[in-house]
């Protein structure tokens, strides 16, 4: 419990440090940046490139479209965009998690499956996301499942799940095969079948491997969802917002930074969700910690 409080404190401290470093850079570095012989070594630090932290925070309260009849503040727009993306990322995490766990079980059960499938699992991750995104969107557009027409956000979720799936399948496989031979033999000597051994030995023993894998997968799902939103042109999420703000606000980057701040908070919330999972399973963390 105490270590958990410490994690929260260090996270907060790191955030404060980051803000301080940002402001310090603005204070001491030349506004035009540092160039040596035409090569830029340090970026420009003037307000147009690096706005003050408080300018960004203040921007959250400003209306999104100046002079609109029913103005929505940028903060609300960013929050709803982040929430939308968080939903897709978590959906992708769940989908990828289910797929990864099932595949790991298959590989654990049948050594042949492991040898046949594992190389493809690894190879799948070398295909760049940018190449996958239009493919998924293209295929998805042709599918209608039981009268439900494919929506662009579904492509985003599928792409997020594709990224989340990898760490979970690999981590789960490691976890499932982590019990020492003596433990496996003990279960065998008790005439325990595959299913009972899975439930009473392999699954509990895989928790210490699974939790860090889910943490990686959650981060991958968030990044995947944001990039997928951008490359499929899906509206409503934080990814699209970053692009829109970046294009609309030339000369005033604080709006874009507000959206980036939203994306960062989104990542923290996803990590926090995994922390809750960790808390719920702490009984199984056992000897590894």
């Amino acid at each position: 419990m105490r270590s958990r409080a410490r994690t929260v404190l260090t996270t907060a401290a790191a955030f404060v440090l980051l803000v301080a470093a940002w402001e310090l850079a603005k204070l001491v570095l030349p506004a035009a940046g540092v160039t040596v012989g035409g090569v830029r070594l340090l970026p420009r630090t003037d307000d147009a490139a690096m706005p003050h932290v408080w300018t960004v925070l203040a921007k959250l309260g400003a209306p999104e479209v100046a002079g609109a009849a029913d103005p929505r503040s940028i903060g609300v727009a960013v929050a709803s965009g982040a929430l939308f993306t968080l939903g897709l990322a978590l959906g992708g995490l769940v989908l990828g998690g289910i797929g990864g766990v099932l595949l790991a079980l298959l590989m654990q059960r049948f050594a042949l499956a492991e040898r046949a499938v594992l190389p493809y699992v690894i190879a799948s991750q070398t295909v760049p996301l940018i190449a996958i995104a239009p493919l998924v969107a293209g295929w998805g557009g042709k599918i209608a499942i039981a009268g439900w027409a494919w929506q662009p956000w579904a492509s985003v979720m599928v792409i997020a799940s594709y990224l989340a799936f990898f760490p979970i399948s690999v981590g789960m496989l490691r976890g499932l095969s982590s019990p020492p031979k003596a433990d496996v033999e003990l279960f065998h000597s008790m005439a325990s079948g595959w299913w009972t051994t899975l439930l009473r030995l392999r699954l509990p023993a895989s928790v210490p491997h699974l939790v860090p894998a889910v943490r990686l997968a959650a981060a991958a799902a968030v990044v995947g969802a944001i990039v997928a939103e951008i490359s499929t042109g899906t509206r409503g999420g934080i990814g699209r917002l970053i692009i829109e703000y970046a294009q609309s606000a030339t000369g005033d980057p604080s709006q874009m930074y507000a959206a980036i701040l939203g994306a960062a908070v989104l990542g923290l919330v996803a990590a926090g969700a995994v922390g809750l999972l960790d808390l719920g399973l702490r009984r199984y963390r056992g000897t590894v910690s």
Binding site: A182, L186, R200
Partner: peptide, 22 residues
């Protein structure tokens, strides 16, 4: 065996119950 091979996520009583549960 030489190593007791108790499961750490189970209490002492739950470890003893294991073969019966199986």
């Amino acid at each position: 065996f030489q190593q007791s091979g108790l499961l750490e996520w189970r209490t002492v009583a739950e470890n003893v119950e294991l073969p019966l549960q199986v």
